[in-house]
Design a protein around this nucleic acid. Sequence first.
DNA 1: ACCACTGGCGTTACTTAATAACAGACAGGC
DNA 2: GCCTGTCTGTTATTAAGTAACGCCAGTGGT
Lengths: 172, 172
Amino acid sequence: MNQVRETVLKSFATAAHDHGRCIKTALAKAEQACVTSGKRLTPLRRRVLELVWGSHEPVKAYELLALLGQEREQAAPPTVYRALDFLQDAGLVHRIASLNAFVGCGEPREGHVSQFLICTACGTVAELADPALSSRIADCAERLGFRVARETMEIEGTCRNCQKTGKAGDHA
Amino acid sequence: MNQVRETVLKSFATAAHDHGRCIKTALAKAEQACVTSGKRLTPLRRRVLELVWGSHEPVKAYELLALLGQEREQAAPPTVYRALDFLQDAGLVHRIASLNAFVGCGEPREGHVSQFLICTACGTVAELADPALSSRIADCAERLGFRVARETMEIEGTCRNCQKTGKAGDHA
DNA sequence: ACCACTGGCGTTACTTAATAACAGACAGGC
DNA sequence: GCCTGTCTGTTATTAAGTAACGCCAGTGGT
């Protein structure tokens, strides 16, 4: 059985970790990824990415819109949705369908799988990248002649911290 | 490795299967389940369930609303959403988050897992219930001290039929 | 230098999705 | 009868997402 990826451990250690640094790293990686793949990380897109990375909690499109509205006159829905579309295509953010929200992706790579643990108490989201899961899915699908294009896995529950502190907030 | 459940095979065999019968069975099971658990499957709720079972394709809330509107004067969003909420709680329908849509559940049971194969060509959805997948998820989660409450798995791709016929419709 | 083409963005308007809050109806227990 | 809770009707509003059009800056060809 495979080692569970470090990404996850990091993300749930929110109390401890230096998030400013976390954002910087993410932005740097993103920039790098765009250079490599010839995609244009414009100021607007960069800023949206930065805002998404504001926390490890999923951010809603209209929240982003409001944030953008504070710093520039012009901010309509398409502004933010277009940026988000780009970022998704580039593998820099993931959309969490069950929450209608977005989170930054720590390991930009196109065609990336999308497996998340979502703590409904604190709202934190951790990305999982378990090859065993993916391959099990592939097995099931193949047996049915189904060709997999995209997998979405969103697991809600309570993270270790929130179990300890008995939190029960409603970030569902 | 476990046998993949029959449910799936049935659902993708849409061309062949007698859907009228399929609905009837589902409704009967639902009624039974409600009796057993002391829940009230009112005429409205029953009708909504029936409409959801109209096909094996996911149905949108506002489509249901329109259908309801044809047969009764009064049909506002809450009408249909409340019915859907009830049906979800009772485990009679599933919500497919990535599509904002609903499908009937062939095996009503509360706390049911939710694993779907979604054909983006024909729109058909098949429910998967693979214990191995669930247990692998549980493993990953446990290792991180994460307590799983609900799992959502939505796998998009192309079903066997559509691969053969080369269909490429956009039921994404 | 000029032109055409493209991609990114601004803007307006609209559709779809979902929920809040309040009011009436109705059923069952006492 | 009356109280209580649950189901439904109704109105209004918020959130989410998309369509369509036009401008402009950069790029590449001639």
